[in-house]
Simulated scan of single mutants.
Amino acid sequence: MKVLLIEDDDETAEFIERGLREQGDMIDRAATGRDGMFLAGDGDYDVLIVDRLLPGMDGLNVVRLLREAEVTTPVLFLSALSGLDDRISGLDAGGDDYLVKPFAFAELRARLRALVRRPPMAATSNLLQVADLTLDRLARRVERAGQRIELQPREFRLLEYLMEHQGEVVTRTMLLEHVWEYHFEPKTSVVETHMSRLRTKIDKPFEAELIKTVRGSGYVLTAPD
């Protein structure tokens, strides 16, 4: 990946830069919003990491201006601001994901990979397919091996998210944020309950298992070997 980091805190920037370079990624850094905006407009980056609170021009305005200039590079906001309104304002400004400080580097990179692999909006297909499982976004129809599968709305969105990230491990936090739009950690087993119901419908009647649990990490939907 080629990454642009717009972050004014030297300690945070060094942590991210070191981690990404160790993974073989290329990374440039800007310490102010204005410098970051110019680099993002001129450079060919796969993804942007943007701090919310920047000197001179804050991260929200940086991303708004980039979107107005039709720069469509995926944006991951970083911020110590963890409130629901803060997250919503980041996404409304044109961000694609939002990660609260402090964070684990493994989750940061997982989110970056998910953003880089996500197809541009204009190229997003209405039909998702993994092996013999298909999901039609417009018709709200799911089939496996030609057999219709009836899903509840939340189950449909859960499956859609897994299929959008096929082959990638998605964490419980990612599912809570993107399927339930929870920006906090609820003390319930809502993810596990819905995942169990989904697997009963998607996998149990069929020979091959598509949805797998990655112990200690999350879930992955992938075609059988």
Rank of each mutant, 00 (worst) to 15 (best):
Q147W: 04
A123C: 02
R144A: 02
M121S: 09
D85R: 14
L128V: 03
Q129D: 08
E70D: 13
E150H: 08
G90N: 10
V75F: 14
P120S: 07
R118I: 00
R109V: 11
D132M: 04
D92S: 14
S89T: 00
Y98R: 01
L78H: 06
V142H: 12
A80S: 15
T124A: 11
N126Q: 06
L112E: 05
T73P: 01
T73E: 04
A106H: 06
D86A: 15
R117P: 03
D92T: 10
P120A: 08
A114T: 00
L81A: 13
A122K: 14
D96E: 08
V116N: 04
L128W: 09
L84V: 05
L99G: 08
R113A: 12
R118A: 13
A114D: 04
V142D: 08
G146H: 04
Y161K: 05
D96G: 05
D97A: 14
I88A: 12
Q166D: 11
G95R: 06
L133Q: 12
A122P: 02
L78F: 09
F77L: 14
L135N: 09
A69E: 15
I88F: 12
R157P: 01
K101C: 12
K101F: 13
V100R: 09
Q147G: 02
D86I: 11
G95M: 04
R141V: 02
L84Y: 12
A110P: 03
R140L: 14
V170C: 11
Q152M: 07
R137E: 10
S82N: 07
T124G: 05
P74K: 15
A114F: 00
R144V: 00
F105P: 03
P153W: 08
